[in-house]
């Protein structure tokens, strides 16, 4: 009977917060086709895009009950439950997107995934990502003093918040749709976003300066409900893990080229683009490491494995 159940066709539900045109959706839709073919049609994957099933927290809860089978959740959401993932959200952890791609495949980063089932009820397969984060401001920014006391929109996660507090900015969590208005009327003075989000929302028209810092990478994790994973035959588990790994690796591999293209587009805009390194922020990075080192042991290991300079 067990064997028969394993052979029965199975529909896997994959929930995403991103809309259908997004790279994540396209890569994972392609993965669904690949998995269907590789399993001779035993597995089909249905995508629920645009947060149709709820936000990331809601999808995580559905992964836990087994209502949802798969998802690609940002490390921001996961760090909310597991401090250890704060290491991946540390400032200036990767020099650029190429290094970020390498880092996310490094055993230290992959090792963090081992703790996911006990902490989140999900099996973590592999990392995906969006572009590196930059600081864009309404006014011209020349020195750190220009940033002090200014309000910056961030994605709500404790490490992100702590870094901006340390550099003397006032971190303000706002939902993505509210940013345009807030930035136009001065309710916030800047945003902490990747190239793609800036271009899609035309924030380059509202900002005078972009500090090209690459200060954060922004990974996501391909997850499967541990409850569901436990019901699969070992061969199927490996099939899903293997194909998902290929798909997310392909996603990450496509990022440097996208980043280069989008960076060129932004350099051509009216916004001034200033390459900026960690030294711009004084000892904020060192202070961050002191605060987060004990909570996220991987932080020191990653700094050692990917030294700057």
């Amino acid at each position: 009977a067990n064997h028969a159940r394993a052979q029965a066709p199975r529909e896997l539900r994959l929930g995403l917060i991103t809309p259908p045109p997004h790279t994540w959706n396209q890569q994972l839709a392609a993965w669904g086709t690949r998995l269907r073919d590789a399993s001779n049609g035993r597995f089909t994957v249905t995508l629920f895009p645009s947060g149709q099933l709820g936000n990331e927290a809601a999808m995580l809860q559905q992964l836990q009950t087994g209502a949802l089978d798969l998802s690609l959740l940002t490390v921001s959401e996961i760090s909310n439950r597991v401090d250890a993932f704060g290491a991946l959200l540390a400032p200036f952890i990767a020099r650029n997107i190429e290094e970020a791609v390498r880092m996310l495949r490094h055993p230290i980063a992959l090792g963090l995934l081992n703790g996911l089932p006990q902490a989140t009820g999900c099996v973590g397969f592999r990392y995906g990502m969006v572009g590196m984060r930059q600081i864009s401001t309404r006014e011209v920014t020349n020195t750190l003093a220009d940033l002090r006391g200014k309000k910056v929109r961030i994605t709500p996660a404790a490490p992100t918040r702590d870094f901006f507090n340390l550099i003397g900015m006032a971190p303000t969590p706002l939902p993505l749709p509210a940013i345009f208005e807030a930035l136009s009327n001065g309710q916030i003075d800047g945003v902490d976003l990747d190239f793609e989000s800036i271009i899609n929302n035309r924030f380059q028209d509202l900002c005078r300066t972009m500090l090209l810092t690459n200060h954060f990478m922004f990974p996501a994790v391909g997850l499967m409900s541990a409850r569901v994973f436990g019901t699969l035959a070992p061969a199927d588990r490996e099939l899903i893990r293997g194909t998902m790994t290929e798909a997310l690796d392909a996603l990450c591999d496509s990022m440097p080229e996208r980043e280069a293209r989008q960076g060129a587009q932004l350099r051509a805009s009216n916004m001034q683009v200033r390459p900026t390194g960690p030294e711009f922020f004084g000892d904020a990075v060192a202070q961050f490491d002191r605060a987060w080192g004990p909570r996220a042991p991987a932080l020191a290991q990653l700094r050692a494995a990917f030294p700057r300079g």
Binding site: P19, H22, S50, L176, P177, E181, N200, N201, R202
Partner: peptide
Amino acid sequence: YAVLARVATG
């Protein structure tokens, strides 16, 4: 809608 469809809010 602008967020869902990835068009400019303006």
